[in-house]
Simulated assay, not measured.
Amino acid sequence: MSLRRETAGSPARRPGYAAAVWGFAFAVPSFYWALGGLAGASTAVAPSLVELARERNPGFIAVLWVTGALKAAGGLLGLALVRRRPWGRAGDRLLQLSAWGAAVLLVWHGALFVGQGLLVQAGVVGVDPELLPVSRWYTYLWGPWFVAGGIAFALAARSRLRTVPADERRPARTAGVVGGLGALLLSAGALAAGIG
């Protein structure tokens, strides 16, 4: 049983570090808005959400804290993907499940932002004229940002899988498939229910 040896700066670890940076960086706006900051929000985020933040709606503020914590957890997941098997077999499976779930969820969500935004920009789908600038942000910044995060998690999971001993790779790969399919089903269900 031979494991690939990697140093901290190894190219195989870069996707995990990229996923970590993505998660931590993406948590900052959520925490900033939860703490009451609104600079730049009115041009980059849906007006209804800005209004909830401005009113300090308790439910929305709680959502901001939770989403910030989830994004920070994504950063920790990215770091866990570069660690040397700290939790053995169960850890390998849990990391694959989580990383592929995050990857699919983020790519799906980002692709929806981009796809819907491009339809709006092309005039196929109409929106209130005051939402056009916000639509551009979702199309050209937020959507690609989600997709980039998803790609980072997918690459990190793939790199991590290569370090798993050969006899344990199949169960870890299966856990990744379950995570990805679970995220896809969750996303499709939310879309069908009109959520997100």
Rank of each mutant, 00 (worst) to 15 (best):
A53T: 06
R54E: 15
R54G: 03
E55T: 08
E55K: 13
R56E: 11
R56K: 13
N57Q: 12
P58L: 14
P58M: 14
G59T: 07
F60Y: 15
I61M: 10
I61T: 09
A62Y: 00
V63H: 05
V66S: 05
T67W: 14
G68S: 11
G68N: 13
G68C: 13
A69H: 10
K71P: 00
K71E: 10
A73N: 00
A73E: 03
A73T: 01
A73S: 02
G74N: 08
G74T: 09
G75K: 06
G75N: 09
G75D: 01
L76Q: 05
L76R: 11
L76F: 15
L77Y: 12
G78D: 09
L79G: 03
A80H: 12
L81G: 02
V82T: 13
V82A: 06
R83M: 07
R83A: 08
R84C: 08
R85C: 01
P86G: 01
W87D: 00
G88Q: 11
G88I: 09
G88C: 09
G88T: 07
G88A: 15
A90W: 03
A90L: 06
G91V: 06
G91R: 14
G91K: 13
G91I: 05
R93L: 08
R93S: 10
R93P: 00
L94M: 11
L94A: 15
L94V: 15
L94P: 07
L94I: 15
L94G: 09
L95V: 14
Q96R: 08
Q96H: 08
Q96F: 13
Q96T: 05
L97Q: 08
L97Y: 09
L97I: 05
L97S: 01
S98R: 05
W100G: 01
W100D: 02
G101Q: 05
G101N: 01
V104F: 15
L106Q: 10
L106Y: 11
L106R: 00
L106E: 06
L106T: 01
V107W: 12
W108T: 00
H109K: 04
H109W: 07
G110S: 02
G110E: 04
A111N: 03
L112S: 04
L112Y: 11
L112A: 07
V114S: 12
V114W: 10
Q116K: 11
Q116I: 09
L119Q: 14
L119T: 05
A122Y: 05
A122G: 08
A122N: 10
G123T: 06
G123Y: 10
V124H: 11
V124T: 08
V125P: 00
V125T: 03
G126T: 13
D128R: 12
P129V: 13
P129D: 14
P129I: 09
P129M: 08
